[in-house]
């Protein structure tokens, strides 16, 4: 969506995920990129090359932080050390908004380092919403939560994934990082219509959109971030921006990473789909 309180009143355009193999190219050629998304945990260190590279990137580009281990949905309390390091990084990057996933991944302090699916229950919604509020209050920056790809649904779920997402973001009063590829992957793995999901998302809360590629297996689709975006996901993106308006969009490419130019060119295709929608709407 356009500037709102959920994305720090910014209009960021099309960004690319910052990945270490591209440092040299980016710093050497300074390509014109609207913004970079960083994985927060990669820079929540005490010093050395990661932070030095980040500081050089920050001299030339806008950066938004994206986390993978806050685990709002875990019954474990928020990790104070994690939050302190994250806040220190927020001050460094001046990220206008910050994202992490609506998922869980730790139990009793043991980390799976995965984005595990939530049971869609009212109890889980309350737990996640409370922790998102706590994080938002501590970090003093708008937080948006991302829908994850999933491969399993719990028997105890009491609502659909999109109803659960709405319940959480309303209770937490936070934004949404809508991953269109994740909606597609989950729709194929669980047999629902992705358009129903998209149409249920509260447009005014969408702070950012994620795009990525995935891998097809015989019985399921895996969110691998190692391919270009497929046509079906571009169509969903077109539908999404039709509802939300031009939205800060980010392409993720995390495995078998090609050249920076190839990744950037794939990301910039988003303009075409946003443009089509706008032309059609005019």
């Amino acid at each position: 969506m356009p500037a709102s309180r959920f994305n720090g009143f910014t209009e960021y355009g099309i960004g690319v995920g910052l990945r270490a193999p591209h440092y040299g190219h980016i710093l050497g050629t300074k390509p014109g990129v609207d913004w970079f998304e960083i994985i927060s945990e990669n820079y929540m260190v005490d010093g050395g090359r990661p932070l030095a590279m980040l500081d050089q990137i920050l001299e030339h580009y806008k950066v938004v932080q994206h986390g993978v281990s806050m685990y709002f949905g875990s019954t474990d309390p928020l990790n104070r050390e994690h939050l302190k390091r994250l806040k220190s990084l927020v001050r460094r990057t001046k990220t206008p908004w910050l994202t992490d996933h609506l998922c869980w991944g730790s139990v009793d302090g043991r980390y799976t380092h995965d984005l595990l699916p939530m049971p869609y229950t009212m109890e889980a919604a309350k737990v996640a919403a409370r922790k998102i509020r706590q994080a938002q209050d501590f970090l003093e920056v708008p937080v948006a939560v991302e829908n994850v790809s999933s491969y399993a649904e719990f028997h105890i779920s009491e609502m659909t994934e999109w109803e659960f997402l709405n319940e959480v973001v309303e209770r937490a009063d936070c934004g949404i990082l809508l991953d269109v590829n994740n909606i597609y992957v989950s729709s194929r793995n669980h047999g629902f219509d992705p358009h129903v999901y998209l149409n249920a998302v509260p447009a005014e809360r969408v702070a950012q959109i994620h795009l990525a590629g995935h891998s097809k297996f015989e019985k399921y689709i895996l969110d691998t971030h190692d391919h270009p975006v497929v046509a079906a996901v571009w169509k969903l993106y077109e539908h999404a921006t039709g509802r939300f308006g031009p939205t800060a969009t980010l392409l993720e490419w995390d495995d078998r990473i090609p050249s920076f130019d190839e990744v950037h060119a794939e990301a910039l295709k988003a303009r075409k789909f946003q443009g089509n929608q706008l032309a059609g709407a005019a």
Binding site: D114, A152, E153, F154
Partner: peptide, 30 residues
């Protein structure tokens, strides 16, 4: 079967297996 649904040609255990393999291979790779 007690935890997650099995559907669409993918049983409950196969669905858990996706997460289990992902867990072990990710940590091993790291």
């Amino acid at each position: 079967k007690g935890l997650v649904n099995g559907s669409g040609g993918l049983g409950s255990l196969e669905r858990l297996e996706i997460y289990s393999r992902s867990y072990w291979f990710r940590l091993l790779e790291s």
